[in-house]
């Protein structure tokens, strides 16, 4: 509990073009509220997991991106809440995958840009969670989806890497694809499978015998 609060001097900063006086222990979101910045629509969890409160941040000549709920007010910074990103361009549904052997081929069809990384490091610099985004993309492009997905474990869907990518690789979605496809094809836990099998043979009938959830035993081809 080393973060001291209370008697520090106030700081002046700019949020969405509005001059704000705040206390340095405040996050940019709190400073925006305190300073009367018109409604902040891009903020939600306030604890760094939803990825909504994307900001551009200027300190002197240096401009970077961050999450407002994890960035503190400081003297002289300029910040701007970025609008939500546009919808992703890469389309796929997991249910289209019939077979695990063609994952890599399908991946290349869905994300053709992924092996065109020019190694500008923009995604890595953008990531508020310190993910090695470039390495993760390279792993996915090489078909190593489990490792790629693990690289994106802390991804909070802010999609700042997508905005930063000049090749339009959409690294966040490459990461999510990698995680999802790994679960979809490889997560087959024996204890769960055993209980499902028991329930298939003898469906659970609670006190009032409700209908079991339809479709929970639907056919899977994988």
């Amino acid at each position: 509990m080393t973060k001291k609060t209370g008697d520090e001097p106030t700081v002046d900063l700019l949020i969405n073009g509005v001059k704000v006086r705040a206390e340095p222990h405040m996050t940019i979101v709190e400073a925006a509220w305190a300073g009367g910045v018109p409604r902040i629509t891009g903020a939600s969890c306030l604890e760094g997991v939803c990825g909504s409160c994307r900001i551009l941040l200027r300190r002197g000549q240096e401009v970077s991106v961050a999450l407002a709920c994890e960035t503190f007010a400081e003297q002289g910074v300029e910040t701007l809440f970025l609008p939500p990103p546009s919808a992703p361009r890469h389309q796929y549904e997991l249910s289209d995958f019939k077979d695990g052997w063609d994952i890599q081929a399908r991946f290349q069809e869905i994300f053709p840009e992924a092996d065109r990384c020019r190694h500008c490091h923009g995604c890595v610099q953008s990531c508020p969670k310190g993910i090695a985004v470039e390495d993760g993309v390279a792993l996915a492009a090489a078909g190593r989806f489990r490792e790629a997905g693990e690289a994106f474990f802390e991804c909070v869907m802010c999609e700042l890497c997508d905005s930063a990518c000049p090749e339009q690789i959409a690294p966040a979605h490459v990461g999510l694809f990698s995680r999802r496809i790994t679960a979809f094809f490889h997560l087959r836990p024996p204890n769960l499978i055993h209980r499902l099998e028991e329930l298939r043979q003898e469906p659970f009938s609670g006190s009032n015998n409700p209908a079991p959830l339809p479709g929970s035993d639907e056919k899977e081809s994988s």
Binding site: V65, G122, S126, A164, P166
Partner: peptide, 13 residues
């Protein structure tokens, strides 16, 4: 080109 996040993300936005 993507090297400077301010430029790439800034102009894209």
């Amino acid at each position: 080109c993507g090297q400077c996040v301010s430029c790439k993300t800034g102009t894209a936005t």
